[in-house]
Structures are given as C-alpha cells and as structure tokens.
Computed example of a mutant assay.
Amino acid sequence: MPTFLCSACGTSYPPADSPPSACPICDDERQFVPEAGQAWITREKLASRHNIAWRLHEPDLFSIHTVPAFAINQRAFLLRTPHGNVLWDCIALLDEATKEIVQGLGGLSAIAISHPHYYTTMQDWSRAFGHVPIYLHAADREWIMRPAPEIRLWEGDTLEIAPDITLIRLGGHFPGGTVLHWARPHDGAGVLLSGDVIQVAADVRRVSFLWSYPNMMPLPAREVRRIGEALAPWRYDRIYGAFVGKDVKSDAQAVVARSIERYAQLLT
C-alpha cells in the first residue's frame, strides 16, 4: 500500500489504499488547508518530480531543501560530529542521491525535530540509516500522525543527544517547540538551529515569534519573554533558521535579546 503525504505540510500517514480524509496538522490554526482543498501525493510521485539541494554553511554543517519547493518548504540540517551525525528537522523527500551523500558523510546517529510541521517522513529517514532514534518532545505527541518504534519522546527542558549537542524546549509555536544548541562548532562560538520556534526575519538582524505563521497570530509578550529567559544561559553566535537565507551570521544572542524587547513593546 502507498504512503500518502499531505501536499500542504508534507506530513506522512500510515500506508493505506487511499489517502486520509483530512490532515489534522493542516486543520489546526497554526497551518492551513489551501483554498483549492486538501491534496495528497505519494512518496514515489514526490521523488519523480523533485530533488534535494545541498549547501555547506560552515565546517560540519550542511543544509538540505527540496527543489522545486514542496509543502512548507523548510530546510533540514545535517550536523557532523565526532560522536555521530545528527539530522535536525526533516523534509518530506528522501532521494537516492541524498542517501548516498549521507552515507558518504558517515550516516546518521540521531534525528531531532523542532515541532510537528517538520515531522514529514522522519520515519523513512530513520529506517534508511539504520533505524536511528527520532527525538521529539513529549508535549507534542498528539501530532504524530504515523507512529514508529524509532520515535523517542523526551520530557523536561533540555536533552543532550550527543556531547555538545543539546535540545532545548522553548515552547511558543508549539508546547514542545525545540531548538538545537551546538556548543563547539569550528570556532567554538556556539550555534543555534532554531526551526521556526525562533523565526529569522526578512531583516536577518531580527528574529520573531508567532503562534501561527501563515495566519499571522502572535504569541503573548509574556511568552516571548519566557523564551528569552530560557535561552539566556546558552552561548551562541549564529542562528540558522527554517528557511533558505534565514541565517543570523554573528552576534545572535544580542539579536534575540533586542528582538524580544521590541516584540514586547509592540504588544504592550
């Protein structure tokens, strides 16, 4: 039986003869059902129409995204470490070229995902690279549309999944909204992979925070200040966000602090 993917968000569903009647993730106010209605695609059709583009951002940090654009069109990151490689966030497409490239870079030891909009085909990625664990925050368990034994639900505010690689639950966009902190990149300055839990803005000297991005629904100022307090102990110089070009290349901690203050002022 085929595995159907939602064309609007990329979420995969259990194999079935026909697609689901609806996508709960798109029915939620943090996403949307397109005006033309819910549509579906199989993994095979997706692979026949799209490819994966790669980019090296700095030593040991690659991003991947789908071309032409598909669904939300986020990017994922492959982080190489001496203790195994980590896939941060996920995209729906996994093509044969990417399987070869990832294996050539040392395979995967773990997958971690910021929030449910990027769960996509995480199950396929895990199984393609040896059934590696998929770390999701337990607060978002209700949004897992395709259960898999590789999923590891974690609780609390932080989880170190490898030396110097820590998941930090910030909440906000989703209760389990998570960012990844990389303590020792090549220059030792610290990197944050933020998904859109912290959204790098069009002006990459700013970041922002929303409950719903497509529907432009804000978070309360108190919630954004709480996110800032949760991040305060962590040292980082750069942020790589969910979308191509959305990178804060220096002084990222100060960028986050200024953005939080301005956000709170505008909601007061």
Rank of each mutant, 00 (worst) to 15 (best):
T98I: 06
C90L: 01
A92M: 07
P116H: 10
F70A: 03
V86H: 02
P116K: 02
D95E: 02
F70P: 00
P116C: 06
S114V: 01
L87I: 10
A71C: 10
E100I: 13
N73L: 06
A110Q: 12
L78K: 00
S109T: 15
V86L: 13
F70S: 01
I101W: 11
N73F: 12
T81M: 05
A110P: 05
C90M: 07
G104Q: 09
L79Q: 07
L94V: 10
G104T: 08
L78Q: 02
P82N: 10
A97P: 13
F70T: 03
I72Y: 09
N85E: 12
Q103H: 11
H83I: 01
A76Y: 05
S109Q: 14
S114D: 06
A112Y: 07
L94E: 15
L78S: 00
D89M: 09
G104H: 07
G104D: 12
F70M: 06
Q103M: 13
V102C: 04
P82W: 13
D89S: 15
Q74T: 15
I111Q: 04
G106C: 04
I111K: 01
T81L: 00
N73M: 05
G107E: 11
A71I: 06
I113D: 00
P82D: 10
I101G: 01
N73P: 10
I113T: 04
F77H: 15
Q74G: 15
N73K: 00
T81I: 00
E96V: 11
V86W: 00
P82V: 11
T81A: 01
C90V: 12
I91D: 04
A112W: 00
I111G: 07
R75Q: 14
A92Q: 07
E96T: 11
L94A: 13
I101D: 12
K99G: 15
I91K: 05
G106Y: 03
L78M: 03
R75E: 15
T98E: 12
N85S: 04
I113Q: 03
Q74F: 13
T98C: 12
A97G: 11
L87M: 06
F77D: 03
T81P: 00
H115V: 04
W88S: 00
R75W: 05
